[in-house]
Design a protein around this nucleic acid. Sequence first.
DNA 1: GAATTTACGTCAGCCTTGTTGACTTTCCAA
DNA 2: TTGGAAAGTCAACAAGGCTGACGTAAATTC
Lengths: 164, 164
Amino acid sequence: MVERPGGESLLFLTDEQLRKGIEAMFFAYRGFTADPDRILEGMDYGRAHHRALHFIHRAPGTTVSNLLSILGVTKQSLNRVLRTLIEDGLVRSEKGKADARERHLHLTEKGLVLERELSDAQRARMRAAYRAAGPAAVAGFRQVLEAMMDPEMRRQYNRLREGG
Amino acid sequence: MVERPGGESLLFLTDEQLRKGIEAMFFAYRGFTADPDRILEGMDYGRAHHRALHFIHRAPGTTVSNLLSILGVTKQSLNRVLRTLIEDGLVRSEKGKADARERHLHLTEKGLVLERELSDAQRARMRAAYRAAGPAAVAGFRQVLEAMMDPEMRRQYNRLREGG
DNA sequence: GAATTTACGTCAGCCTTGTTGACTTTCCAA
DNA sequence: TTGGAAAGTCAACAAGGCTGACGTAAATTC
């Protein structure tokens, strides 16, 4: 990143460029959550339920404390969400065999159905954006997002299935 | 986007790739808001106040209803935030000259100071991410985010100063 | 074997930020 | 002059964060 006045490497770090990026994150995140939110409104669930379903699907058999560190909320907050999902038969919680203090979480058939519906909607938007922007843009997108994470979050992110 | 099996143009649209993108958005957004949140905790303000300050700074003299459509919340919700900012002397609200029903919003000196502090923190993270990823990645990042917005949001986004 | 720590669950209460609905005041424009 | 838009306000509520305190079972340590 040489400091050549007027050079391209300097240009994209101007105040204006950075503010534009900030605003892009703000507006894009709204789009990102819009479709699942729409599906969930009317049901008794919200964005927090969606997140739990997503990560349980993604890391089946995960423990509660692992989920806590992924989501970055308190156990009281997660528990409120998890309880309703278990009561409604979307999530199954079972004692660990190696360590019986732990609870391992899985989606039930019913849970898989809802997760799939939410995920389909969210992926459809993602797919459209990827298609519109093209493969090179997608790579850049992922690079910048990854660089924006806190190191701890980046660790979590990379642990979730090395695939992708 | 030719459907050639195994081809690069298909590869990046796999379910796994899309889920990875979704998770990247989730974790990155956490980082994106972390620094301002940290600054605001302890003050009587929150993320909603930050957003109001940001967009008033960005579009000085904007009306309340314009701000409403940018932020996408109800006027009652915005009003609660705006009222405290005005009472605390961070925002100045003045009757429109052409149309006296409208209120035009500006940051005061004090408001500019806080906005700058929050913005500095957020831009610092953005700058670091941009530096780490490089100019090409930044362009891709912006392209994908823009494609992810709802059309209405994209309009708002593009109206905020064509510069950037 | 007793004491401590860990993982989880739960009760109670609080805060921020979003929502609806109802209503008023002000003021522009047909 | 009247209808409707813009702004503001009150009240009530919900989602989803938070802290603090406490309980229980299981694992670990002394």
